[in-house]
Simulated scan of single mutants.
Amino acid sequence: MLIEIARFFASLASYDRFRSRYSIRGVMGPDEFHSGYPHAPYGGVDNNAYTNIMAVWVIHRAIEALDLVPDRYRAELVDRLRLDAEEMVRWSDLGRRMVVPFHDGVISQFDGYAELSELDWDHYRERYGDIRRLDRLLEAEGDDVNRYRASKQADVVMLFYLLSADELRDLLQQLGYGLEPEAIPRTIEYYLARTSHGSTLSAVVHAWVLARGHRDRAIRYFEQVLASDITDIQGGTTAEGIHLAAMAGSIDLLQRCFTGLEVRGDRLILCPQWPDTLGTLEFPIYYRGRQLWLKVSGRSIEITAESGHQPPIEIMCRDSLVVLHPGSSVTVS
């Protein structure tokens, strides 16, 4: 499946001789507002940064997965899928020469984004109040959202939700682009100011990406996620069906975002950032076949392991490394 997904994205890319890079043209990114350009509103956009970067990411993962398969099975798989050397060479080339557009020190949502008009956000908020479905408001005025630097939900910002800063920086470096540390918060703030949050999932993504540097703002978006169906924040859509992805996103924010929970190699990584005003956050997880209990208070976390004969677990929290043995507890901060 991974190989076929990589094949699909590779098939979308065409070589741009002027840029000496590969382009993916005529797509709609996660934003969903931009179905095309002002002169061709239904033709899609070119080189959506999220699409191009994630295409490269999946191609790299497919190559890595093939390398992990034992030689005998790998030969059978390659033969069955008719994956020849020429195709692999093209994948490798795509992984080094895909277009990623930039403008004004930020990652561009797509080619030509910087040429679009700026929207008077204050005017529309003052006039309509709720501008989540900005596209419909503009359409009612005889206008088109394709003309503006405006997003329904996270698009470029999705990159910071799915990839760590190091992963994204490494991908861009392999493509020949630089991404200085200050470019990340600058890019997030740039698009945050141009997003109407017309989807319940937008609050999930923005809560996540703001959690490290702007915890208070992240909690406000988290509260929006929790209220999605309870208060029917989109004004009638809950009756048509609950927003299950936003519900799952709220659990993910608790389990992984506000705890900094991730796995790197053979270590469990934690970096808690939970508001003290919300009390203690407690929940169990399963890690490599064993149950652990996590108790989070502010920037500290207590981890308790069930009894048994399993090997100890290495846990990293910020710059501290501790070892958790079966039937014991450790606290890190």
Rank of each mutant, 00 (worst) to 15 (best):
I5K: 12
R7Y: 06
D16T: 09
D16C: 10
F18G: 12
M28T: 15
M28P: 00
P30N: 07
H39T: 07
D46F: 10
N48Q: 09
M54P: 01
H60F: 10
H60V: 14
I63W: 01
P70F: 06
D71V: 10
Y73V: 03
R74H: 04
R74S: 03
E76V: 08
E76H: 12
E86W: 07
V89R: 14
W91T: 01
D93N: 13
G95D: 09
I107F: 04
Q109D: 15
Y113I: 07
Y113M: 14
A114M: 06
E118Q: 11
L119G: 03
D120Y: 06
D122I: 09
D130P: 06
L134K: 00
R136I: 05
L137N: 01
L138A: 04
R147M: 08
K152H: 06
Q153S: 03
A154I: 04
D155K: 05
A165G: 01
L168S: 03
R169F: 02
R169M: 06
D170A: 13
D170E: 15
Q174F: 04
Y177E: 03
G178M: 09
G178D: 15
L179Q: 03
E189F: 04
Y190A: 04
Y191F: 14
G198I: 08
S202K: 01
V204Q: 02
W208K: 14
V209C: 06
G213V: 01
R215V: 06
A218I: 07
I219C: 10
Y221L: 11
L226E: 12
L226P: 00
A227Y: 02
S228C: 13
S228W: 02
T231W: 09
T231N: 11
G235P: 00
G235K: 09
T238M: 13
G241V: 04
A245N: 10
M247D: 04
L253D: 03
C257Y: 01
L261S: 05
E262W: 12
V263S: 09
I269M: 15
L270I: 13
L270M: 13
P272W: 06
Q273M: 12
P275I: 08
P275N: 10
G279I: 02
G279Q: 14
P284H: 11
P284W: 14
I285G: 02
L294R: 02
K295I: 07
I303F: 04
H309T: 10
E314H: 11
M316Q: 09
C317N: 07
S328P: 01
S328Q: 14
